[in-house]
Simulated scan of single mutants.
Amino acid sequence: MAGGRLVSMKDVARRAGVSVGTVSNVLNRPEIVSGDRRERVEAAISELGYVRNDAARQLKLGQSRTVGAIVLDSANPFYGQLVGGIEGAAEDSQLMVIAGSTGNREQRERLYLSLFEEQRVRGILLASTGGSAELVAAIRGRGTPVVLVESEPGAHGSSVRVDDIAGGRIAVEHLAGLGRRRIGVVAARQDLRQVADRLRGARAAAEAAGIGFEVIEAEDLSVLAGRTVGEAVVARPRAERPDAVFCVNDLLAVGVLQAFAFRHQVAVPEEIALVGYDDIAFARSTVVPLTSVSQPADLMGRTALALLEEEIASPEAPPRQVSFTPTLVERESTIG
């Protein structure tokens, strides 16, 4: 600070006895500045505590080093793992990531999209509620690349996703293979593509196996909502309970498991087998370790950033859609 204000390049130039252009060259092309002048500028920078405005420089050059990431729910550890993958890849490329969570709300998603565009970020990685397609297309048209994460199949532009229909299917196929005949699927927010696809896959597997299938609606996609559903299942007469439950995410499954374990009212998996989705880190350390459908969250994040950089490097190249196949991780909640 100089007299209570930020130190400018002019201040540095005045202290070093050189031109502003020389200071700029020391900061950006030091190899073309003589050793004596470079040392004087570097000493002035140190004495005055000058910090260059890199954001302004990047804006002028049109080369931002900041990536915007928008996820559906920061309370879900899956999205923490996803952002972790983005940040890991960004660190390798000397980029910065700013992440925002929409809380599954379209209005907040649109706000983040607009703010990131206004900030002239390098690009946006978006796990969408599905309601901002027109805004995304407009932002792309104005020159900011957007890569969709957990996108609709065949989405416009580059995208990375997991085959959630396959994920729902393998969960119920696993339960049917264990001899379970009455499947309850705990779900919320069926308007979200991911949830709808998991339900589609689960229903198709149940129909193929000729077993009972029931959708149990939760208030939202949280642990507390899962616990409420679990308590409602426990309150049923034993003959009316499902003998297996598949939850469309692990948070719901953890809540259901808590309700079942309370006072040992339901034995898992002996009475009711339980499967979650996402394979968050906590799934392996629940009171009964949770069988879960695993998504490669870290790899998805890294892939999304790689697709963004590909688009920046070759804007005329056709977009790429990358799809991963989920896998089932078996633990004691189904196999005892």
Rank of each mutant, 00 (worst) to 15 (best):
V245W: 00
L178P: 00
A208L: 09
C247Y: 00
E217M: 06
V229K: 08
V233H: 03
D191G: 13
C247E: 07
R238Q: 14
G210N: 07
V245R: 02
L221W: 09
V186M: 05
D243C: 04
V195A: 15
V223Q: 12
A204Y: 01
R181S: 15
G212N: 07
A176S: 14
R238H: 09
A204F: 01
Q194L: 12
R180T: 10
R236G: 05
V245T: 05
G179P: 03
H174S: 09
L192Y: 13
L178H: 02
V185P: 01
R241F: 03
A188P: 01
V229R: 05
V195I: 15
L178N: 04
L199F: 06
R236H: 07
A176Y: 11
I216V: 14
R236F: 05
V234F: 04
A232Q: 15
D243H: 05
L224M: 08
L224P: 00
D220T: 06
R200Y: 01
R189C: 01
R238Y: 06
E240L: 10
A218C: 06
A196W: 07
F213L: 08
G210L: 09
A225C: 02
R238K: 15
A204I: 04
V185W: 02
A235Q: 09
R180V: 11
A205W: 09
R203T: 00
A187I: 00
E217P: 00
G179Q: 03
